[in-house]
Nucleic acid binder design. Structure first.
Lengths: 344, 344
DNA sequence: TTTTGTTCCGTGAACGTGCACGGTAAAGAA
DNA sequence: TTCTTTACCGTGCACGTTCACGGAACAAAA
């Protein structure tokens, strides 16, 4: 039924050992034999049996996953289920998943994490580029060592990555603006931002905000866009900042936040009781979902981080096991709109 | 490293042949040996190596997929990518996917398809129940023959199915109503329906409509709900029916359709040029997406049919290969909201 | 007693691949 | 000539299963 290495060997007039050498690009084969074998492989459309291969080779591989560490309920936790699932699938190929975390606000910790990864000499790396420059440096070092890597969430403008799985950030901002304006065109929008993010070099939310602002400029150029800065680590500060803002702009009825922390302002919204207010945030954190259910937040635009992680690792195992590159290098995944009625 | 059948055999004081017999519930093992082996397997946490197993067994399995046949661009075509993907994954386990189509409006063709499936004696069946009663009959016959089956899209109230992958129909109607009313509360809504569907016994859209009507009754009891019936096979008839409706109700500004055919009314909408109209439909057919892009349709509530198909087959192969039942029997998958800005 | 049957169980050859090992032939060196 | 080196290549075991085959032990029948 299926073509085996033996068939290839027979038709090439060599032994399966030689065919094996050709398949794995090992030395010890004459030019003539190599070409003949390659020809037969092409003609027969021979594909090695992955399972026999895994069974026979006792090699163990390691994929390093380099993502920001997180506290429970934070954005990056959403990747966890995808990593788990992928880890289970990969384990049957003798591939293990090694997770390395770092503080996404501390460049030094990122550098240290990179060193850890490099010294482990993994078979592949999955990462999210939080620091633009340092990621570029790290990427080129990986390339030198011949280690393939894939990006998730966002990517840096650079060649050499094997794949990218993420969502179109710009469009997500654009979409958010469209949803915000649906049915009731605002005259004034409050954009709540995190102070610490003001000076970050590479923040996906920057692109997202650009999409938002472009939509507003195109469709509702007269609408005023106000920034309200809050401090995530000081509970209560957010409420105060917002209270101050609303005391000077009592007619604002539209609020957005471009990062995953819309839940930080639910306390304020609940207590202050702004009615008829439309609130839109991003990402399906448990806290955000419950705000949605309560009706404090109207909509969430979400991505499937767990799917991104899963696909990333899957493409990596596919490469390790059968040297197959993914069909597309850049994979933009769909974004979902969540309301209280489809938050499940 | 890993526990093999040999380890189990050694510790049970029998040969690997006997262990194999125990694992596969074959006869020819004394009660004593069987219990001893089972005990050792439990204690060691032994799990058979799937790949060695597939390699050694030259058995071929077949999964029958029983879905309505479709023309290009119709709803059921959306399952195709998921079936393809699953077929490829399954093929490495010597499992092939056999697709059997039937006319979803013709009971006899469904019965014939069922017979085809039964006579093929597949290892498992994946199906969508279009005809309630006949599906129940078919299901019980499968059960007699010991063939497991899973439902996608919708299910019948009956025990014995292995799994179900679908979306919460009722909630999707509820959600649709919420989206329709967002920002601009309607006084009158036009529900466009297919004449042929009026007398169907089991139509998912019935449940969907119920969710919609409940929402409207709860939130906007004064809103009028009008039915407009159209005939899908007579192009032009839809436009005429709608024109007639709008001549008597010129103030209607909200239109919904609960099946996947919102694209049938784009011609009318474009030509008639109703402005400020909010139009919501279901399912991401290419024609619907393009209507979304054109701005004729405002929103689509969609399910991931291809994911449902994929999961269904995957759970079936998992059962065939390693006798593992899915974690959950009923799997409600998420519904997406699509606007022109996240239709990708 | 021998024969036949039954129940239980072990043996060993596959499945398709990877890889260590060793062997052969040709060419060059002594 | 004989020995060494080099380049190439085949052989055979291992991976963890499955399953056909046949053997052992015992009981029942002749």
């Amino acid at each position: 039924m299926n073509i085996t290495i033996k068939d290839v060997a027979r038709l090439s007039g060599v032994s399966k050992g030689t065919v094996d050498r050709v398949i794995h690009n090992r030395e010890g084969v004459s030019r003539k034999s190599r070409e003949k074998v390659q020809k037969v492989i092409r003609e027969l459309g021979y594909e090695p049996n992955v399972y026999a291969s895994v069974l026979a080779s006792r090699k163990e591989y390691e994929i390093a996953v380099l993502l920001p560490s997180y506290k429970s309920g934070e954005f990056w936790e959403l990747a966890e289920p995808g990593l788990d699932k992928a880890a289970e699938e990969a384990s049957s190929f003798n591939i293990s998943i090694e997770r390395i975390g770092y503080d996404q606000y501390d460049l030094e910790s990122f550098k240290a994490a990179c060193e850890t990864v490099l010294s482990a000499k993994p078979a592949g790396v999955v990462m999210a580029p939080m620091f633009k420059n340092e990621t570029a440096v790290f990427a080129s070092r990986l390339q030198e060592m011949g280690i393939p890597y894939v990006f998730i969430d966002s990517k840096i403008e650079q060649d050499g990555y094997m794949a990218y799985y993420g969502l179109p950030m710009y469009q997500s901002g654009y979409l958010c603006a469209d949803l915000l304006c649906m049915g009731q065109v605002p005259s004034r929008v409050a954009v709540v931002r995190i102070i610490r993010d003001k000076h970050r070099q590479s923040d996906p939310t920057v692109t997202r905000r650009a999409g938002f602002l472009d939509y507003m400029a195109e469709h509702h150029p007269d609408c005023a866009i106000d920034n309200v800065f809050i401090e995530p680590n000081q509970p209560g500060q957010a409420a105060r900042a917002l209270k101050e803002y609303f005391s000077t702009h009592p007619d604002t009825r539209h609020i957005v936040m471009f990062n995953s922390r819309i839940h930080l302002i639910v306390d304020f919204l609940e207590r202050y009781g702004l009615k008829g207010c439309r609130v839109i945030g991003f990402d399906n954190l448990p806290a955000n979902i419950s705000a949605l259910r309560k009706g404090v937040v109207d909509m969430l635009v979400t991505q499937h981080l767990e799917e991104q992680a899963h696909n990333a690792i899957q493409s990596m195992t596919d490469y390790i096991v059968r040297k197959k590159l993914p069909l597309q290098r850049d994979n933009f995944m769909h974004m979902d709109i969540l309301t209280r009625y489809n938050a499940d």
